[in-house]
Structure formats: C-alpha cells, structure tokens
Design a binder for these strands. Structure first.
Lengths: 341, 341
DNA sequence: GATTTTTTGATTTACGTACATCAGAATTGG
DNA sequence: CCAATTCTGATGTACGTAAATCAAAAAATC
C-alpha cells in the first residue's frame, strides 16, 4: 500500500494538519518541523494522490490555446484536434479555451499574453511567433509560475517549459535525404515551395534541407525559393510557372501549406516528366496525391498528438509532476503510400 | 458543473442507493425503476467520475503482460519499457506483472492463460503466438469479460479488444518501396534476412515486401530468405556467405533481429560495393550503423508507446470506457540519419 | 388478507486529500 | 515572568463515488 498523509504524520510525529501545511506550502510551520515532515515524506516515498487531491479541491485545469488566425489546412486540423480535446474535458478535468490572434503579429500575441497573466489560467499552449518581445513576456509568465508550452512553432531561447512540435531542421534534412536518395545519380534542379520565409518553421526546414543537399547531394541544385504564402492559388501559379520555364527541374520540396495548388500544377505540367516530389502535412489532398504517385513522400506532424501532449504536459507542470519525455516527443512522420494511417 | 449521483437520484425521483445499484449493476432494482434511472443518466449526461470511483473502491488495475522468453534486443527493450511502466504504477493505480512463456509454444501460452482465468486480473496484454488453440482461449476469456490486448504480434480473427503493434505487412511494403526508390534504376538482387518464417510478424513483413517488389520494382530480384533466427552469429555467417557468393546483391532487407551480425558482415564484405540496406528496430547498433552509412534506413516500432498504449487500453476496457483510437495507433517509424530521436 | 419476497429508502462509513477553525502549546520579546 | 506572537494539534467538513446495513414500503404469493 502506498503511504498516505496519515502515515507521514505518524512517522514524523506531527499532526495531520501540520503535514497538510507542509505539503501545500502553507505558513505556520517551524523550520525544524517542516524538515522532519519532509524527511518522513522522502523516507516513506510518499506521493500525493493527485486524483484524490483534485477531487478534494474540486479542481479543473483551465487551459488556454493561443493559435494564429490563419486558415490553412494544418491549422484547421489543429483546431479540430483541440475541439476533440474539449469534448474530452469532463473526463480529464480540463477546461480548454482557444484564443485566435492575427498571424505573425508579435504585438497582438504579447497583448493576449498580458491579459492572460491577469486571468491566471492553469496553463498556456501557444503557437509562438518568434520575436524578442514575445520571448520576454513568456519568460516573465514562466517566472511568475505559469506553465507554458509552445505548440507547432517553438520559441527558442525562452523559458517555456516544453515544445510540442517537430524539429523542423531535422524535417528539412530528412526531406533532402529522401529526395536525394530517390533521385539517385540524376543531376538537375530542385524547386522549393515555401509559405513564407518570415515563418520560423519554414526557415528552419529550408535550412536543414539546403545543408544536407549541399553536403551530400552536390549534383542537385536548389532553385530560389518560391514563396506561396500557404495559398493554393499562388502556389499553383508559382509552381506551374517554374515548371514551364525550367526543364531541368527533377525534384520538388514543398515545405509549407497550399499543397492543393502544387498538386494541380504538377498534374498539369509534369505528366510527361518524372518528378520526385516531397511535401509536408498529410491532408486529404496530399494523401490522394501520394496514392496516385504525384507525390512520393509526405512528412507530417500529428496535430492530435501535439494537442494531447500539450494538455498532458501543462497538467503535469501545473501539479509540479514529471512528464514522460519519450511520450511527449513529437515525431516526424514519414508517409509513403504503403504506411498511410 | 457536471452532474453527480445525487443529481441523478433527484432527477429520477429515487434514492442514492438505488442509483448506485443501477450504476454498479447490483440486483434488487425493479425493471421500471432501473429504466427511470437510466433515462435520468442519459438526460443529464451523467459521466461517472472514474477518479472518485477508484478512490472509493481503493481500486488498482492488476495487469499482466505475457512475453515470450526470447532475448533479442527488441524483447529486451520491451521488457525495459514494462519496467518503466511498473515504476509509474503508484501514480497510475496499476499493478503490473510480467509472465514469460517459451517462445513459439502455443500450449505453454494456453496454459498460462488458463491459469490467469482463475486469478482474474483486470487485464491481459500478450505477445500472441498465432495458433488456433490460442485464439480459442483468448476468445473464451474475452467472452468471460477479461480485457485482452495483443502486443507487438497480433492474433487476427480473435476477439481481442485491441492490437498494440504495427501493421507488419505495411512495414514490409514500406521497406520495399524505400529500397526500390533508393536503388533507382539499378538492376540486381536483394538479400532478405529474417529471424524465422515461423514467426507471424516476419512472414507478414516478407509478404508485404515481396508483393511491392513484384508489383513495382521488377528489376530487383529477391533471393531466398536467410533465416538467422534472430541470432547475431548466425546472421553474420549467412550474410557474409551470401555477399561473397553473390556479387549481384545490391540491397539488403533485414526484417528481424540479430542486426549486430548483419552489420559486422556488411563492414567486412561490402566496403567496396554500394549496398543499400534497410533494417528493422532501432538499437544502439543499428543507430550507429545508420550514422556511419552502413544502413540506409531503419524501420521501428516504439516499444514504449506500445506498452503505454496497452496499459491505457486495458484500463479503459476494464472501466468500459472508450479509447482515443488515433492515440493508440502504433506507427511505423522510419528513421534516416537525420531524424533520429 | 396475511405472509413472504422483492424492491427501495435512509443512513453511515470509507477512500486520500484539502482546507478551515479553534484551542492549546511552545517560543519570542520586553 | 507576563504578554504577544508563532507554531502545532485536534477536529470537522467537503469532494464524488462505493458499499454495507437496516428499516420500510411495495409487490407477489398463497
């Protein structure tokens, strides 16, 4: 049987009330007494029964998800997963709410965080916009005791407790190696379609991609990046244009959203040539394209896993508990047509 | 506020005791009364507070993991993950125990299951050996109300509640496509190293592998399977022999364990030729081989995820709760040297 | 209609923790 | 040494559910 507060009280030779004061860091305990109790806790290996504690407190974890107001299909999926989490709320003692902020707008994000600091939720998950002022307020909130995790897009160098997202540099590197290996000995040019070079994830993917390409696949030349702004129409235009203009293109890496446009362009312009294509994010469109061989591989991050992980980590941090690191690591999924879920 | 048993009692116009009798399917409630209570439960959307219930019951979930007594590094890792789960037991109200049975021995497995049926654990996770008599007793236990999940190796056609493992046919198909694409236009022969064709996982991987090879990569010929019995020494011998004998080998697929021997053979015999190699299971050895380019890709199943998933599913089934399907799906991880964890 | 059986109600205790109150003890300051 | 202050103990209630007991009511049986 695991020890209870009663056992601690008996072992430390104090009353239940004193144990309670120590456990919940309430005032009114002399230093020596507190040490006695803490020693007993350590010796007996006492672990607070979180379920019972939450029951007694009537606690619910109020969590806030801050998301950019961009309507690409990845964010759409992320939203859907949060709604799923909200449906599970009663069973998980959570009370989840989302706040939309304009995308790429550090000031807006900062002001939302300011407001939250007054409201005192139990935890905050945010798709970070990488800016010094955001880092500053995140650090301030963390120091003030708020559990904070970044979601999908990290805030490196900040004090955030956890990052629930993939390593985008590794994703870019993986894309490069896959593309390089799939193309084998062929020489030629690679078109890269990104959303915007202002977005950190995209910059990082490109960085990883170019470095592996340069190191290991010198026969492949990367063309200037096409910035499709995650918009299918623009993506279509840019890719179609590049393909008609340049007959030397033998591979495409799409590291952002707007793949619907990419796929259309490929079907129009590339039926006759063997193009190797790698794209990010598994959606209905990319899945179909993978199955009909328009795309050769899809790199994906599981939004459901990211949301569930963020919730678990925030709850654990709110209770001062440890997380299972391996469980919270978001993997880079590589999908070929054979291992689709 | 979510409704409690008190609210149900008030709404149904019965006493707390009656609600309890209905909720815990105790006798002594007239049919009409039971219906009244059930209606109230539905109308108010009552969900039992599992944490409070477990507290009241003093419940711990006694779970049994049945594992084959084979000491390859995957099973070793699986064991380690179970030990981790045991360490978490106090916080998770679980009481986990493992039972080793001789590998590939249906009779032994059946007798262990027979015994467990008397002991009445809350749930059983088992690495299944695929045999009719095993299926029969699993079905009997499921019908008797035991939650049962298969782990790593499934028992198709049985009534087991869940399978915590990868789709091995998809794994084989994925391996074939990766190998085929990596080899590009080259023609040649492929060596396949398996543990034993008596193991279902291995048979399925091979099945997936050969079918994609036949369909899509006709220039690649699969040589007769080398059965290394998951033993590094035997694997080394078989692969070294095959490589010296056959100069036409340009690719290797290792779908079982014993990769240490494979890697040694590759380093001895294949330094001069460019061989493309795909192996299963990420271990210290395969990881090193991936990093030094001896192996080109590793397919992996995350034993930690499998164990945690099995525990979650068994607990949920024991309580008659739903599981989050997407969370319990075990993915086939594809590791290149760039996305290693 | 009396008797037996079944069904229901009322009440209590328990699980492990949180939190509040009040009295009493120990410590400190003057 | 007394008063003021700081600590500690004892006790009770609460959270939502389980489970047991015993009495009372209702239904079924004869």
């Amino acid at each position: 049987m695991r020890p209870t507060v009663h056992d601690i009280a008996a072992a430390a030779g104090v009353s239940l009330a004193t144990v309670d004061r120590v456990l919940n860091q309430r005032p009114g305990v002399r230093h020596v007494t507190r040490e006695k109790v803490e020693a007993a806790i350590r010796e007996l290996g006492y672990i607070r029964d979180v379920a019972a504690a939450n029951l007694a407190k009537g606690r619910t974890y109020s969590l806030v998800f801050i998301l950019p107001a961009s309507d690409n299909s990845f964010m759409y999926g992320l939203n859907a997963e949060i709604r799923q989490a909200i449906l599970r709320s009663p069973a998980e003692r959570t009370d989840i709410r989302t706040i939309e902020v304009p995308a790429f707008d550090p000031a807006a994000l900062v002001s939302v965080l300011e407001e939250l600091s007054r409201e005192k939720p139990c935890g905050i998950a945010m798709v970070a916009t990488d800016a010094p002022e955001v880092r500053a307020i995140v650090d301030r909130l963390v120091r003030a005791g708020f559990p904070i995790v970044t979601l999908v897009s990290d805030l490196t160098g900040s004090l955030r407790h956890h990052y629930a997202g993939v390593d985008n540099i590794a994703a870019g590197r993986t894309a490069a190696r896959l593309l390089g290996r799939f193309l084998g000995p062929r020489k030629g040019e690679i078109a890269v379609l990104a959303g915007s070079m202002l977005v950190r994830d995209h910059r990082e993917r490109l960085e990883g991609f170019t470095s592996v390409m340069a190191e290991e696949f010198p026969d492949l030349t990367i063309l200037p990046v096409l910035e499709g702004r995650d918009d299918p129409e623009i993506a279509h235009m840019l890719v179609a244009d590049a393909l008609s203009r340049n007959a030397g293109i033998i591979g495409v890496y799409s590291l952002g959203a707007g793949n619907r446009g990419l796929i259309r362009a490929l079907k129009e312009k590339a039926v006759d040539r063997t193009l190797t294509v790698i794209a990010h994010e598994l959606t209905a469109h990319t899945r179909a394209a993978l199955l009909d061989h328009t795309i050769d591989a899809i790199l994906n991050q599981d939004a459901g896993h990211e949301v569930r992980s963020a919730v678990r980590v925030l709850k654990a941090k709110a209770d001062g508990l440890a997380v299972i690191e391996a469980q919270e690591r978001i993997r880079l999924d590589i999908f070929l047509k054979d291992n689709l879920p």
